[in-house]
């Protein structure tokens, strides 16, 4: 399933590169900044969940949650982005994505609408961003009222996956 999805996304990238199409993103906010994840990668959006802390896990791992019988690893996006906040995990929204056949949920402040943005508005990541942010971001969209940073799921998960 995930293979098929990533192929679809790839196809869209191709179309977008030709300037023919727009891309759909699920938007979300972490510490005031808007982020986007390609809509086809998102499996679920959940409200605040009961999350079981996992001792000794990497700091970015907030714990595990039960999504209809599947055990999903929750990633604290505030910690991942370097803007931690006390009590964040208990009120965070969760965006569930699948990466290499394993489900992960990204904990964010809020989840917004699905936006279709014209590919022409896409820009490269400004070189002045911190290295951490640059590695996480795939690109930036200029929207009318804000800037939307597109997240690269593989990079977001890379520090926790390094142990695997």
């Amino acid at each position: 399933m995930s293979i098929a999805t990533s192929r679809d996304v790839g196809a869209e990238h191709g179309a977008a590169a030709a300037g023919l199409a727009a891309e759909d993103y699920v938007t979300m906010k972490v510490a005031g900044q808007a982020f986007g994840i390609p809509v086809l990668l998102v499996r679920d959006v959940l409200g605040p969940q009961r999350i079981t802390r996992v001792p000794l896990a990497p700091p970015e791992v907030a714990g595990s949650l039960n999504l209809r019988g599947r055990i999903v690893t929750a990633i604290d996006m505030r910690k991942r982005l370097g803007v931690p906040e006390e009590g964040f995990v208990s009120r965070a929204m969760a965006v569930v994505v699948e990466h290499e056949d394993e489900p992960f949920s990204l904990l964010v402040d809020e989840v917004g609408e699905v936006l279709s943005v014209p590919i022409a508005h896409r820009e490269v990541v400004p070189a002045t961003l911190s290295e951490n942010w640059r590695s996480l971001a795939e690109g930036v969209y200029r929207l009318d009222d804000r800037l939307l940073v597109v997240l690269n799921i593989a990079s977001v998960l890379s520090p926790v996956r390094a142990n695997a």
Binding site: R50, T52, V54, P55, L56, A57, P58, V61, G63, S64, L65, N66, G69, I71, T73, E100, E102, L157, V160, R161, N163, A164
Partner: peptide, 24 residues
């Protein structure tokens, strides 16, 4: 155990209890 946490020797698996909570 999720691959992200497989390096932790203290856990051999995960499970879901009757009340739906995930525990190690």
């Amino acid at each position: 155990v999720s691959r992200t946490m497989r390096h932790i020797p203290c856990f051999s698996g995960t499970t879901i209890l009757g009340d739906g909570q995930v525990i190690m």
